[in-house]
Simulated scan of single mutants.
Amino acid sequence: MTNDSEILCIGSVLWDVIGRSSAHMRAGSDVPGRITMVPGGVALNIAMGLSRFGITPTLLSAVGRDAEGDRLVELCRSMGLGTGLLYRSDDLPTDRYMAIEGGNGLIAAIADAHSLEMAGDKILGPLADGRLGSADTPYRGQIALDGNLSSDLIAQIATSALFAAADLRIAPASPGKAERLMPLIAHPGATIYVNLEEAGLLLHAPMPDAAGAAAALLGRGAYRAVVTDGGRMAAMAGPGGLVEASPPEVLVTRVTGAGDTFMAAHIAAERRGEMPDPALRTALAAAAAYVSGDVPS
């Protein structure tokens, strides 16, 4: 194995096109605001968050060999992210995500991760060919994995020897893709990070609060579950029991990427040796700083 990465981030690496307005919006609203195009995707957002905490991540994803892909990879390199193991396709374009955010939160979003889905298990090549590991000597480090992968690939990962020894951290990417993660719930080394809506989709029943959802996910076979609920109490359930914490109250100026920031901060806190309660509070504080605009995109 030749890789020096501290953690792998597997999933979407793309461009975020975000329209933001301070006005409260509804379907059909036409308001003034700002439109930005920044590096994004769940795996990349987590990687950027980890980098801000002094952790060196390596990206496993699909990025096109188009001009947008070249620019995206160069920006990732400039941030100290490992890009040498990305699958670069000649015939698949670089993916995009588009969202509209108003003063009342996320109005709508579309994730175009078709190239990542079409690339399939090609992005996992380094885990099988000896660069990061193989079926006989699987990767033993941390892996942050997002739900933008295809359902077939997620099902393959759930039983793959390549992931059997990993400390697997899982994010659904969006409520619409949460149920893709069902095969991974029982993975013996997995921590699943979901919001309350996503937890309800995985459990096929609405949950009243984060604590109940985290406990119910353990009841379904999860090793560890972390559940957030916006500005309300968050919870983590695992072998050590259940802990809850309330996020700081802040003025919300953006929402896209908040969950990814939370997950990165929680991973970083645990790597520093923080116990469950302070690690959860650290992650909530980082997410609050992000949504308030105190952390750069």
Rank of each mutant, 00 (worst) to 15 (best):
T58K: 01
R20V: 12
S115I: 06
A214C: 13
M263P: 01
L92F: 09
D70M: 08
L201Q: 13
E74Y: 00
L86N: 11
A166G: 06
S12R: 00
Y139Q: 07
G84R: 11
E198L: 11
C9R: 02
L145K: 10
L184G: 02
T191V: 14
S21H: 03
P239L: 13
V63A: 03
V295C: 09
I123T: 04
S297F: 15
G147D: 10
G102E: 04
G120R: 02
P188L: 07
M98D: 02
L59I: 09
D90L: 10
A199P: 04
T253P: 02
A119Y: 04
E179D: 04
D66M: 10
I267E: 02
Y87E: 14
L50V: 13
I7K: 01
D121N: 14
R34D: 13
P138G: 11
K122V: 07
R220N: 03
A268Y: 08
P126E: 06
L145N: 09
D16L: 04
L280A: 10
T137L: 14
R271Y: 04
I100W: 08
R254C: 12
P188F: 12
A119T: 10
R77A: 15
S29K: 10
S22K: 13
G28S: 14
A213K: 01
L149G: 06
K177V: 00
E197G: 00
L168M: 14
A210E: 05
A287S: 15
R26W: 03
P188R: 07
P296F: 04
M118H: 12
L153Y: 03
S297K: 01
T36V: 15
D294Y: 00
R52K: 04
D294H: 05
R169L: 09
L251W: 00
A199S: 14
S246F: 10
